[in-house]
Simulated assay, not measured.
Amino acid sequence: MKNSFYLILIGCVLLACSTSKPEVVMVTKTIATKDTIRIANDSLDYEVIIIDAGFSSWLDSRAYPRKYHSLNYLESKNQLYVSEWNNRVLQPQLYNPNLYEMTINYDPMLRYGYEVNYLIYNYMIYFQNTNKQKLFGTVPTR
């Protein structure tokens, strides 16, 4: 299940990063079901799908509420998390390749908007807590 999520998440982020735009008005749709969260933006032609049986309930019960962190905070944390994630994908002899299957193409010059950054950030926190990993520094818990 987790492997499918990673493949879908990374593929969608790759699609989202095809061109760099300095400022874009974001119109996103978020649809959540039992174990799937879908984020789509038709104007940028991207879609992110998070498939993980425990993430939706964790997001509802354990994550900080939306707008708790600023967009700048989320973007800076996501850059660090994604950078470390990608380093681990490239070192399968050191890190479990079942956890880190594919690189994520997160472009800091592209404005993904609050919702996308919020969900990526919280998935990274969830991933670290669930899999006992530290992508950098300490892992925030709540």
Rank of each mutant, 00 (worst) to 15 (best):
N3D: 09
N3L: 13
S4A: 14
S4W: 14
F5E: 07
F5K: 03
Y6H: 06
I8G: 07
V13M: 15
K21P: 08
K21E: 14
K21S: 14
P22F: 12
P22D: 07
M26T: 13
V27R: 15
T30Y: 11
I39N: 02
N41L: 10
D42N: 14
S43R: 13
L44F: 11
L44C: 10
F55A: 03
S56M: 14
L59M: 12
S61N: 09
K67I: 02
H69D: 09
S70T: 13
S70Q: 07
L71V: 08
N72W: 06
N72G: 07
Y73I: 01
S76Y: 13
Y81K: 01
N87G: 03
R88N: 00
R88I: 02
V89D: 04
L90I: 03
N96W: 03
P97Y: 00
N98A: 05
L99V: 04
Y100L: 00
M102I: 07
M102P: 00
T103V: 10
T103M: 10
I104P: 00
Y106S: 04
G113H: 02
E115A: 12
L119N: 01
N122C: 06
N122V: 10
I125F: 12
I125Y: 09
Y126W: 07
Q128P: 03
K132P: 00
Q133M: 09
K134S: 11
K134E: 06
F136M: 04
R142I: 11
